[in-house]
């Protein structure tokens, strides 16, 4: 039995807005196994970033966690105080990197200064080991000439290098779990490929666990072992990456996979999902996908389908399965 490092149960988050409550997350359930890369995919506004931020309790002020549990080992993260989160969890147990590496680094300070700041806050290393740790972390992510590079400022680095600095900063604090929110979306393909290679190396050599949030299924295919598919604030399906492409069961997953360029290489065969993603102020009753689903039956518009197990490592929320 593999150890489960992160388990999210029935997580509900709402945002207060002028137009009313937006139910961004409505009963999210997922498990991340230690030492694996777990993809979290879905289209814009489905709640994947909110899920990642909720784990670290980094939500904006207008967000309310309405229910659920987030187990990290034996700890329920939602029960910790803000001070405990800051001291015990953020950085040293769970770290996060964001989409735009440019805005995650402070332009006024050198790379070394910023990594040092993180190390001083989150790591137990004695001060005389910091330099060594920073250098090793920068070399680990294959940054060329790390000894000189750490004295540079962010504007002297390219986007791909900055994102690798973020990874190095994270590594220097030695967390167990990394949450990566669209880390390669701002990067070019060749730079993205180099970045993926670095992550793969960390997985093999450091046994790092990553919750990888993205809308790019091709990256999932290259990196992840397991995947959770989100739609309109709920999990549609949890499955292995292989099953995602070879045996998707939820009608949304199936359509999504076949609307990806690269899975389908001709325009004729490309799948279209009719309609558009619902707004979460007044989401459809029952299964939130039912207005766009070709397999919908009467019950789909009345009751939300629970996640049910189809096979080991494969759960799906659909009345028709």
């Amino acid at each position: 039995m593999e150890e489960i490092i992160l388990k999210i149960e029935d997580l509900k988050v709402a945002f207060d807005t002028e137009e009313g409550d937006v139910e961004a997350l409505d009963g999210v359930e997922l498990e991340v196994k230690k030492g694996t890369f777990h993809g979290l995919i879905g289209e814009t506004g489905c709640g994947k970033s909110v899920t990642g931020k909720t784990v670290l309790r980094l939500l904006d002020n207008n967000a309310r966690i309405k229910g659920g549990r987030i187990h990290y080992g034996n700890i329920d993260l939602l029960k910790l105080t803000e001070k405990q989160m800051e001291k015990q969890i953020r950085g040293n147990e769970i770290a996060m990197i964001f989409q735009d590496p440019g805005s995650s680094l402070n332009p006024l300070f050198t790379i070394k200064y910023q990594i040092e700041e993180a190390v001083s806050m989150y790591s137990n290393l004695p001060r005389n080991k910091w330099n060594q740790a920073i250098l090793e972390a920068l070399q680990r992510v294959k940054l060329p000439d790390a000894a000189n590079l750490m004295h540079r400022y962010p504007h002297q680095l390219s986007g791909g290098m900055k994102q690798r600095v973020m990874i190095a900063m994270m590594l220097a604090c030695q967390p167990q779990l990394l949450i990566a929110d669209e880390p390669t979306t701002a990067l070019d393909v060749s730079i993205q490929a180099q970045f993926i290679k670095v992550l793969r190396d960390l997985k093999e050599n450091l046994n790092l666990t990553v919750l990888y949030i993205t809308h790019d299924l091709a990256v999932i295919s290259e990196l992840c072992d397991y995947v959770s598919v989100m739609y309109a604030g709920r999990i549609a399906e949890n499955l292995t990456t292989r099953d995602l492409f070879k045996n998707p069961q939820h009608p949304y997953t199936d359509k999504l996979v076949h609307s990806v360029l690269g899975v389908t290489t001709t325009l004729e065969a490309l799948e279209e999902i009719p309609g558009s993603v619902p707004r979460l102020i007044n989401p459809p009753a029952g299964c939130r996908f039912h207005p766009r689903c070709q397999e919908a039956i009467a019950i789909c518009s009345k009751e939300a389908p629970p996640l049910q197990e189809l096979a080991p490592n494969h759960t799906v929320a659909c009345h028709r399965r």
Partner: peptide, 8 residues
């Protein structure tokens, strides 16, 4: 070659 392919 750098383009990630969605094929497990």
């Amino acid at each position: 070659q750098a383009v990630p392919e969605p094929d497990p």
